[in-house]
Amino acid sequence: MAIIRNASGSCGISGGSKFNLSVSSHRNMTGHWNVAIDLAKEDPYGELQRRKPKQIGLFIDHETATCDNSETVHISAKATVSGNVGGVPADYEQFFGLGYYKLHTAALTWLDAQTKCTEEGAHLIIVNSAQEADVISTLYSRGPKPEGATPKQGHLCYVGFHDHQQEGQFVSVLGSPLSKSGYVRWGNNQPSGGAQENCLVSDSSAIYWDAPCSWKLMYICEYKS
């Protein structure tokens, strides 16, 4: 079981392996209760091995109540598994059914941004649907503060499209045409920059603009596990 975030930004729970918590108790000779707790994790599909957790943490709280000569003990437990999921960088956020994403606020040029994403095992975001466009809006909704961005352009971020090979023919960093990406939403009178603006940027509403690749902007990396 894992807590995940969907494209609208709300949290939900996905299926997965389960924790089994067993509790046994006995009263010792001094009249005190001793409680033994055993935590086991079902792992029929090797999930625990894939996650390579650093540790399993168990947090216990309890309450005792006495009424009519009977004593009731209520025990609550919370188990956590730390560690990356399938090699995904720890600071990437999962959006259910889409993938893992990170908004970098330290501004870079388009090429440097793509290089940074690649170093993290990812690539600049390639939006393939309106649901994936919501990822951009969700990340922006948290009020990111760009660091070192080109003046007056701090509200924009780089995405994974360019027209370096042929003017006006935008393709993704994976080589697929923008026209077949599943999502295209241009700003007014865009694209407009000609040979001087060969990289795609997005605003907080996932609206596209062509821009100089030399601008230093925020950028979103996408990791598909």
Rank of each mutant, 00 (worst) to 15 (best):
residue 170 F to N: 08
residue 145 K to A: 06
residue 92 Y to S: 00
residue 108 L to M: 10
residue 210 D to W: 06
residue 169 Q to N: 14
residue 211 A to T: 02
residue 85 V to I: 12
residue 100 Y to F: 15
residue 160 G to D: 09
residue 55 Q to T: 05
residue 21 L to T: 14
residue 39 L to T: 04
residue 29 M to N: 13
residue 67 C to G: 03
residue 214 S to K: 09
residue 72 T to E: 15
residue 130 A to C: 02
residue 79 A to E: 05
residue 90 A to E: 07
residue 98 L to N: 04
residue 178 L to Y: 04
residue 150 T to K: 07
residue 50 R to H: 10
residue 91 D to M: 09
residue 26 H to P: 00
residue 188 N to C: 04
residue 153 Q to R: 14
residue 192 S to H: 14
residue 67 C to L: 09
residue 106 A to T: 12
residue 173 V to W: 02
residue 3 I to T: 13
residue 2 A to M: 08
residue 28 N to W: 10
residue 214 S to N: 14
residue 158 Y to N: 03
residue 51 R to W: 04
residue 70 S to E: 09
residue 187 G to R: 15
residue 152 K to M: 12
residue 115 T to F: 03
residue 168 G to D: 05
residue 185 R to A: 12
residue 219 Y to T: 03
residue 121 G to D: 01
residue 220 I to D: 00
residue 161 F to N: 08
residue 41 K to A: 13
residue 218 M to E: 00
residue 42 E to N: 15
residue 19 F to I: 03
residue 59 F to D: 14
residue 119 E to D: 10
residue 78 K to D: 07
residue 27 R to L: 06
residue 141 S to M: 01
residue 150 T to N: 04
residue 75 I to K: 01
residue 201 V to R: 11
residue 32 H to T: 01
residue 95 F to N: 04
residue 81 V to N: 07
residue 58 L to Q: 05
residue 150 T to F: 02
residue 109 T to C: 09
residue 123 H to R: 15
residue 194 G to H: 06
residue 122 A to Y: 09
residue 93 E to N: 03
residue 86 G to S: 07
residue 122 A to Q: 09
residue 96 F to H: 15
residue 54 K to W: 02
residue 180 K to P: 00
residue 26 H to M: 08
residue 116 K to E: 03
residue 183 Y to T: 01
residue 93 E to K: 05
residue 49 Q to W: 10
residue 55 Q to V: 03
residue 57 G to D: 01
residue 100 Y to S: 07
residue 46 G to L: 05
residue 121 G to F: 04
residue 220 I to N: 02
residue 160 G to H: 05
residue 130 A to L: 11
residue 212 P to L: 04
residue 87 G to R: 05
residue 55 Q to R: 15
residue 78 K to G: 02
residue 78 K to R: 14
residue 15 G to E: 12
residue 80 T to M: 01
residue 102 K to S: 01
residue 190 Q to E: 15
residue 45 Y to S: 14
residue 57 G to Y: 03
residue 185 R to C: 06
residue 26 H to T: 06
residue 78 K to C: 03
residue 100 Y to D: 03
residue 56 I to D: 00
residue 99 G to K: 00
residue 140 Y to C: 11
residue 34 N to T: 11
residue 222 E to T: 00
residue 193 G to D: 08
residue 40 A to Q: 13
residue 32 H to S: 13
residue 109 T to P: 08
residue 103 L to F: 04
residue 7 A to I: 10
residue 186 W to K: 08
residue 80 T to I: 08
residue 182 G to K: 09
residue 208 Y to N: 07
residue 184 V to F: 02
residue 108 L to P: 01
residue 25 S to H: 14
residue 199 C to M: 04
residue 4 I to F: 14
residue 217 L to P: 06
residue 1 M to G: 10
residue 160 G to A: 06
residue 108 L to T: 11
residue 157 C to P: 00
residue 34 N to A: 09
residue 171 V to H: 12
residue 84 N to W: 02
residue 22 S to C: 00
residue 2 A to T: 11
residue 37 I to P: 02
residue 192 S to A: 15
residue 89 P to G: 01
residue 55 Q to I: 03
residue 92 Y to I: 00
residue 161 F to H: 12
residue 181 S to W: 06
residue 154 G to N: 05
residue 173 V to N: 12
residue 185 R to G: 01
